[in-house]
Design a protein around this nucleic acid. Structure first.
Lengths: 183, 183
DNA sequence: GAAGGCCCGCGGCAATTTGCCGCACCCGGC
DNA sequence: GCCGGGTGCGGCAAATTGCCGCGGGCCTTC
């Protein structure tokens, strides 16, 4: 990439607590002509964004001990034009709905590659020739979605969620630790 | 319900191609004080909405041979105030994102009960500190409902259902042998 | 009418998951 | 400080699932 390209490179803020993943994605995006800045938590992300509001942002939903959701609002407060992509390895309909309503541009489940990230960030709204897929959810997937929904209803309180679901707290913990299955 | 209540009843348009499900939900919503009109496809829904734009709408994503997604835009064109809930037994993150971006108020995966539908329709953007009705279904109960629905979709074919649900035929048999749990 | 192809029901057994203990820790109120 | 409630996690017995196999029924096709 030349110095000219650098000068014109659109800024992109990448927030993820997984250093390895973050590094790989940052490098891939940099190679594609973006000026990437990285942060591992909400505080660091806000510091970077306050100093220089990015044009694009890629946020991990599940950071070390906090949620990336509030960042959506805060980034949009700094610059309403920011295009935000929510990214997570623990995707669910419940959190997707929440993210989009908060103003995220798109929402993707990990794993993703840099091209998918960029496609999601640039996608113009509206052209919704969506799949409307064929097969119903697997029981496992359905359970995951339901758990996420109830968990959101209970503000992330695991004990309360376990009670509401009539399952053991320990079991719920274990289920949450696992990644959602596809399908 | 008195005549006064009827006069004040908020209008709700319910669109689903499954007559049984539609009937059950319509009755349940009617009992809760809504003036429910029903439609089985997009054309019928539009006809009803054009004549009398509803305050609320509950749309099935997967209608017989069409998608319910375009209806979101069309209903909002008729009346931007309409609060729309997308409902589907074939939930996916992708369609959820699309529905919300198109302007839907919320998105839920079937099976749901009437209270959850209303809670979703009334939930305000900020957050859900609203007095939510009854407790959510237990995972066990949810699983049972889902299995029954998919089983019906497959004309009672256990092998096909097991494949669709990505579970073992033997396991499905055992689950079916047990009584439905309540909760 | 024999051969496949699909389906159902069920026994058995190993692997995985649950239920249910416990413990250590953090936090917010009293 | 002390208490109640939430979180994370190890361990272990009990229950459930996954995955075999078998026999049998009901079609369709050679």
């Amino acid at each position: 990439m030349s110095a000219n390209d650098l000068a014109a490179a659109p800024s992109l803020l990448l927030v993820d607590d997984d250093a390895v993943f973050r590094g790989v994605l940052a490098r891939a995006l940099g190679r594609r002509g973006y000026a990437v800045s990285e942060a591992a938590d909400v505080a660091a992300a806000l510091a970077l964004a306050a100093a220089n509001p990015p044009e694009y942002a890629v946020l991990d939903l599940k950071l070390e001990h906090e949620s990336g959701l509030p960042l959506i609002r805060q980034l949009l407060d700094l610059d309403p034009e920011t295009r935000i992509l929510m990214l997570t390895g623990y995707a669910s309909v419940a959190t997707a709905v929440e993210a989009i309503k908060l103003g995220a541009t798109h929402y993707l489940a990990k794993p993703v590659d840099a091209d998918q990230v960029l496609a999601a960030l640039h996608r113009t709204e509206g052209d919704a020739q969506v799949p409307v897929g064929g097969d119903p959810l697997s029981v496992e997937r359905l359970e995951w979605e339901h758990i996420q929904r109830v968990l959101a209803d209970n503000d992330g309180n695991i004990s309360a969620t376990a009670r509401a679901l009539k399952m053991h707290r320990r079991t719920l913990q274990r289920k949450l630790a696992k990644r959602p299955v596809r399908g």
